[in-house]
Deep mutational scan, measured.
Amino acid sequence: LKKVVALYDYMPMNANDLQLRKGDEYFILEESNLPWWRARDKNGQEGYIPSNYVTEAE
Results as ranks from 00 to 15, higher is better:
Leu1Asp: 05
Leu1Val: 09
Leu1Met: 11
Leu1Ile: 11
Lys3Asp: 01
Lys3Ile: 13
Lys3Arg: 14
Lys3Val: 13
Lys3Cys: 08
Lys3Ser: 06
Val4Pro: 00
Val4Met: 08
Val4Asn: 01
Val5Cys: 06
Val5His: 05
Val5Gly: 01
Val5Asn: 04
Ala6Tyr: 01
Ala6Asp: 00
Ala6Arg: 00
Ala6Lys: 00
Leu7Tyr: 03
Leu7His: 04
Leu7Thr: 05
Tyr8Trp: 12
Asp9Gly: 04
Asp9Leu: 02
Asp9Thr: 05
Tyr10Phe: 11
Tyr10Pro: 00
Tyr10Trp: 14
Met11Thr: 14
Met11Lys: 12
Met11Ser: 12
Met11Glu: 14
Met11Leu: 13
Met11Tyr: 14
Met11Cys: 14
Pro12Thr: 05
Asn14Pro: 02
Asn14Thr: 11
Asn14Tyr: 12
Asn14Trp: 10
Ala15Asp: 12
Ala15Phe: 10
Asn16Leu: 11
Asn16Thr: 14
Asn16Gly: 15
Asn16His: 13
Asn16Asp: 13
Asp17His: 15
Asp17Val: 09
Asp17Phe: 15
Asp17Ala: 12
Asp17Lys: 09
Asp17Thr: 09
Leu18Cys: 02
Leu18Tyr: 01
Leu18Lys: 00
Gln19Phe: 08
Gln19Tyr: 08
Gln19Val: 08
Leu20Trp: 01
Leu20Cys: 02
Leu20Asp: 00
Leu20Pro: 00
Arg21Ser: 08
Arg21Lys: 13
Lys22Cys: 08
Lys22Phe: 05
Lys22Asn: 04
Lys22Met: 09
Gly23Tyr: 05
Gly23Ile: 01
Gly23Lys: 03
Asp24Trp: 14
Asp24Glu: 15
Asp24Thr: 06
Glu25Pro: 08
Glu25Trp: 14
Glu25Ala: 09
Glu25Phe: 15
Glu25Val: 15
Glu25Thr: 15
Tyr26Ser: 00
Tyr26Trp: 01
Tyr26Lys: 00
Tyr26Ile: 05
Tyr26Arg: 00
Phe27Cys: 08
Phe27Gly: 03
Ile28Asn: 00
Ile28Met: 03
Leu29Ser: 03
Leu29Phe: 06
Glu30Ser: 10
Glu30Arg: 06
Glu31Arg: 09
Glu31Tyr: 12
Glu31Val: 11
Ser32Ala: 09
Ser32Gly: 13
Ser32His: 08
Ser32Gln: 08
Asn33Tyr: 10
Asn33Cys: 14
Leu34Gly: 15
Pro35Lys: 15
Pro35Ala: 15
Pro35Glu: 15
Pro35Asp: 15
Trp36Ser: 07
Trp36Asn: 07
Trp37Ile: 13
Trp37Lys: 06
Trp37Leu: 13
Trp37Pro: 06
Arg38Gly: 03
Arg38Asp: 02
Arg38Asn: 05
Ala39Asn: 00
Arg40Met: 13
Arg40His: 04
Arg40Gly: 03
Arg40Tyr: 06
Asp41Cys: 04
Asp41Thr: 05
Asp41Ser: 08
Asp41Glu: 03
Lys42Ile: 10
Lys42Thr: 10
Lys42Met: 14
Lys42Ala: 11
Lys42Gln: 11
Asn43His: 13
Asn43Glu: 12
Asn43Phe: 14
Gly44Lys: 04
Gly44Gln: 05
Gln45Pro: 02
Gln45Thr: 12
Glu46Gly: 02
Glu46His: 04
Glu46Ala: 05
Glu46Asn: 04
Gly47Asn: 00
Gly47Asp: 01
Tyr48His: 05
Tyr48Gln: 07
Tyr48Glu: 04
Tyr48Ile: 07
Ile49Leu: 07
Ile49Ala: 02
Ile49Pro: 00
Pro50Leu: 11
Pro50His: 08
Pro50Lys: 06
Ser51Tyr: 15
Ser51Thr: 07
Asn52Trp: 15
Asn52Tyr: 11
Asn52Thr: 12
Asn52Glu: 12
Tyr53Glu: 01
Val54Gly: 01
Val54Ser: 01
Val54Ala: 03
Thr55Ser: 11
Thr55Gly: 09
Thr55Gln: 12
Thr55Val: 14
Thr55Ile: 14
Thr55Leu: 10
Glu56Val: 13
Glu56Phe: 14
Glu56Arg: 10
Glu56Leu: 14
Glu56Pro: 14
Ala57Met: 13
Glu58Gly: 14
Glu58Met: 13
Glu58Ile: 14
Glu58Asn: 13
Glu58Arg: 11
